[in-house]
Simulated scan of single mutants.
Amino acid sequence: MKTNEKYIAQPFLKWAGGKRQLLPEIKKYIPETINTYYEPFVGAGAVLFGVSPAHAVINDVNSELINVYQVIKDDIEALIEDLKKHQNDPEYFYEIRNLDRTEVYPTLSGVEKASRIIYLNKTCFNGLYRVNQKGQFNVPFGKYKNPQVVNEPVLRAVHQYFQENEITILNGDFEKTVERASEGDFVYFDPPYDPVSDTSSFTSYTLTGFQREEQYRLRDLCVELDKRGCKFLLSNSATDFIKEIYQEKGFTIKIVSASRNINSVGSKRGKIDEVLVLNYESN
């Protein structure tokens, strides 16, 4: 089935490149029948939660993000309790933000680290996750009047979904995530996007970035998955480069319009063209 209506799980973080706005369009192309659902760049999980598959393998290279998912799955009560301690105050915000610059940070528990990331995400400027060259969170205070740091219903819904279904959570390379994918499985790829201009690339999500060499490696993985009989759907920016490398392999490309609300420059927010690449006939 496309969706599992039993769950109201939804993204609990604001995330650059999040697919909440594009979800209705994406869901038009999700296969009716899926054995195992794979999402190697899970991010905030809008598509995962929108589909709510019973069997899924999710992954992200961002270890902080994956820790949050793991804690929600395994230790929801402790997480909710820890979130209640946070204050919407600039002095407190910078104290918590700067923990990863201290010797204290490695001693924090998984729950404390997850609580910190959710708190920073809800109170930092524009809900942006960004790190500097040392891997330290560096987004300033957002000055919001009443941020919803403890969204208990949503966190509990995600916990319930993880507990009642077979969800494997990984933190590694996208290629390794789908090494067991086979015929009847479905893979949704939402990689860091190919920049539409020389100044638009967002590479501060992790220390490694995602260059064109990686875009080619991802394209070649799609070719391999196609040979295995897997169905895949991939989102990316509608650049000539992206359209060319997938068209030359015979894959179907759909142009869709998406809203982008996370950008440090206000004029760069709004509607932009994206592509959906797939290797099967859409429903």
Rank of each mutant, 00 (worst) to 15 (best):
S201G: 13
I66G: 05
T208A: 15
S204I: 02
E179A: 13
Y188P: 04
I30T: 09
D194I: 06
S264N: 09
S52G: 06
C124H: 02
A16Q: 07
G142M: 08
G266C: 05
S182V: 08
D194Y: 10
I272S: 08
I80S: 06
P106T: 11
Q70R: 15
Y205I: 07
G266Y: 09
Y37G: 05
E81I: 04
E112P: 02
T203F: 00
R180H: 14
L233K: 02
G135D: 13
S115F: 02
D226M: 01
E5W: 06
T3Y: 12
A46V: 09
L233F: 09
N279Y: 11
Y205Q: 01
F241D: 03
S63K: 14
S257N: 14
L218Q: 08
F162M: 02
L120I: 05
E164G: 01
R219E: 14
N132H: 08
R20E: 11
F137K: 10
T177I: 04
G17K: 11
V131Y: 08
N236L: 07
E112F: 04
Y246N: 05
L79D: 02
V131T: 13
N4R: 12
N146Y: 12
P140T: 12
G17L: 10
K113T: 00
N4H: 04
V57M: 08
Y119W: 03
F162D: 01
N279W: 05
L23K: 12
A181E: 06
E91Y: 09
P106F: 04
N59Q: 05
Y280Q: 03
E213M: 00
A46D: 10
I58S: 04
L278F: 13
G184P: 03
K85R: 15
I262F: 02
K231E: 10
V149T: 12
S257C: 09
A78K: 15
R228L: 06
K19N: 10
K85V: 14
M1F: 07
K84D: 02
E166V: 03
I253H: 08
E112Q: 15
H55M: 08
